[in-house]
């Protein structure tokens, strides 16, 4: 039993990290008042370009992750153009982007022959004796670099959003773009930046999915995880630390499911596979019911900003 728990906990970070990174990215974007439903698409773009680097350039997982983040950021500029400059409905724009990314990654990866080709990918950081420590070793110290970077990254995003001038401006744009505009903050520029930065993190999550976890690319491999990240942000009330907690919850469930089956506990499989989604719904309902006015939801979320628009 203790082996089971150790194995399970040791596997949680790898499953939680894509959710944590993606949710963190979405928080940045949405804090600037831009709804981001495109996460599933950015995940795919990141996952595919990460594998593309490994297969096309060589075995450089760090470079692969950077390119994954960069490609998603690049694609997000299309989204930014649509929803910030052209003021297209952000729901429609986000959905269109997902479909675009699904088709595009399919075509590119197929033509390039990247499908189903295993890579070595990201390996655990060698920490010598630490990884050998019983119980704590596998749980805490046998991970890759990105897992270790996750907590500092969440701290950084929380700090930047909450405690710096840049964060204040970004939040001002998300809460009251008109006031921010009057105060001399460039609303469009801030939103472009927030979209690109957010997409880079989601792209990184996608890159991690293929380069760090699956170590293979197949079409559509994000498997709905982008949508869970979207829900996770609402779940976390747009707060980075809560997003990390939520990601750990979802990662924990995802790592637990096959392990319960593997030890021979005969639970109804469809019910088990449903649990992450059930948890999402449950938390959203719970949050709505205990609505206490402390929501950190950006007030201008999803609303295109038009200078001096009459309301």
């Amino acid at each position: 039993m203790s082996d089971f728990i150790v194995n399970w906990l040791a596997n949680v970070p790898a499953f939680a990290l894509p959710y944590a990174l993606a949710a963190l990215g979405l928080i940045i974007t949405e804090k600037a008042g831009v709804l981001s439903l495109g996460a599933e698409g950015f995940l795919l773009v990141g996952a595919m370009s990460g594998i593309g680097v490994l297969l096309g350039i060589g075995d450089h997982p760090a470079l692969a992750l950077v390119v994954a983040a960069f490609s998603a950021a690049l694609l997000s500029l299309v989204y930014a153009l649509l929803v910030v400059t052209l003021r297209v409905n952000q729901v429609i724009g986000g959905l269109a982007l997902v479909f675009l990314a699904q088709g595009m990654t399919g075509v590119i990866a197929t033509r390039a022959g990247w499908t189903n080709r295993p890579v070595d990918g990201l390996q655990p950081v060698p920490l010598g004796g630490l990884g050998e420590v019983p119980v704590l070793g596998p749980i805490l110290f046998q991970h890759d670099i990105l897992v270790f970077a996750a907590v500092p990254l969440v701290a950084l995003v929380a700090h930047v959003l909450g405690r710096t001038m840049f964060g204040l401006r970004l939040r001002a744009v998300g809460d009251g773009p008109d006031a921010a505009d009057a105060a001399g903050i460039g609303v469009a520029a801030t939103r472009y930046g927030a979209i690109a930065l957010g997409a880079a993190l989601v792209g990184l999550a996608g890159g991690y999915l293929s380069v760090g976890v699956a170590k293979i690319w197949v079409e559509g491999m994000s498997g709905g995880r982008g949508w869970i990240a979207v829900a996770l942000v609402i779940f976390a009330r747009w707060q980075p630390w809560r997003a990390l907690a939520g990601a750990l919850l979802f990662g924990g469930i995802e790592a637990l499911i096959p392990r319960i089956a593997a030890i021979g506990v005969a639970l109804p499989q469809y019910l088990v596979l449903m649990t992450p989604y059930l948890a999402t719904l449950a938390v959203m309902i719970w949050i709505c019911l205990r609505h206490d006015g402390t929501s950190l939801e950006p007030r201008a979320l999803g609303i295109a900003h038009m200078r001096e628009e009459r309301r």
């Binding site: 089971f4 194995n7 699956a214 197949v218 079409e219 498997g223 995802e254 593997a262 021979g264």
Partner: peptide, 27 residues
């Protein structure tokens, strides 16, 4: 024979998790 259903035909993340969980059980 210990079977893990992934609920998906084409999800390498879930397949990897299932295979790993089985290997941990001494398969």
């Amino acid at each position: 024979l210990n079977v893990v259903y992934t609920g998906a035909w084409n999800d390498p993340v879930k397949e990897r998790a299932a295979a790993q969980a089985l290997a941990e059980q001494g398969v």
